[in-house]
């Protein structure tokens, strides 16, 4: 063990005060259940347990720049299984939110996807797979958009063949108004959506 970092409690305090459910991380006993339950564990640079440990140690930059805080897909496995009942998902989203609010965009595409997903749901009450991917692929300009589209072309064809994606645009759902008022409420609580 070579590196010599200093413990800095100020970041933990910052998290407790600013991040949704941030205080809950105090309960972590570092068992590793969250890390191993996560379906995206292979893609994360630090699993939730390590994020919590780093917050405690005061590693602000590492935490806010971690890709893992942006990766959570809300599958709830870790949260359901956490032996200390930590709302891991809320904390991860909270951290992502906080990082974005501080102008840190580690995984901009995740944020973009989130925004587009939200907006589409808000508009029609459902996801139009082709529209969502188009918006998501082309968010960084037309060249990248074409590249990304071509990469995913095969997947698109398979989805079409299996009827998972329609050629015609999706219609609005019935009762879209009620849904919108629900989503508005969610926005107010600050827990929903990714704003870029």
């Amino acid at each position: 063990m070579e590196t010599n970092t200093s413990y800095d409690p100020s970041f933990a305090r910052e998290v407790f005060e600013n991040v949704d459910s941030g205080e809950e991380i105090k309960m972590c006993m570092q068992c590793g259940m969250c890390a191993a339950s996560c379906p995206l564990r292979e893609h994360m640079d630090y699993p939730p347990r390590q994020i919590f440990s780093m917050i405690r140690a005061g590693k602000r930059d590492m935490v806010l720049n971690a890709n893992s805080i942006m990766m959570c897909t809300s599958c709830y496995t870790c949260q359901v299984r956490c032996p200390r009942g930590i709302p891991v998902i809320d904390v991860m989203h909270g951290l992502a939110h906080y990082a974005i609010s501080k102008g840190i965009l580690t995984r901009k595409d995740t944020a973009v996807f989130g925004r587009e997903f939200w907006q589409q749901i808000y508009k029609t009450g459902r996801i139009d797979e082709k529209d969502l991917s188009r918006r998501y692929f082309f968010a960084d300009g037309i060249i990248t958009g074409i590249k990304k589209s071509l990469q995913m072309a095969r997947m698109g064809i398979i989805m079409l063949l299996h009827g998972r994606m329609k050629i015609l645009p999706e219609k609005k759902i019935k009762g879209i108004k009620s849904l919108r008022s629900m989503l508005d409420k969610a926005m107010q609580t600050g827990k929903g959506g990714s704003e870029v």
Partner: peptide, 12 residues
């Protein structure tokens, strides 16, 4: 068995 070795951070 799957888990995380919390001492090394490695996947088990």
């Amino acid at each position: 068995l799957e888990g995380e070795n919390t001492n090394t951070g490695e996947r088990i």
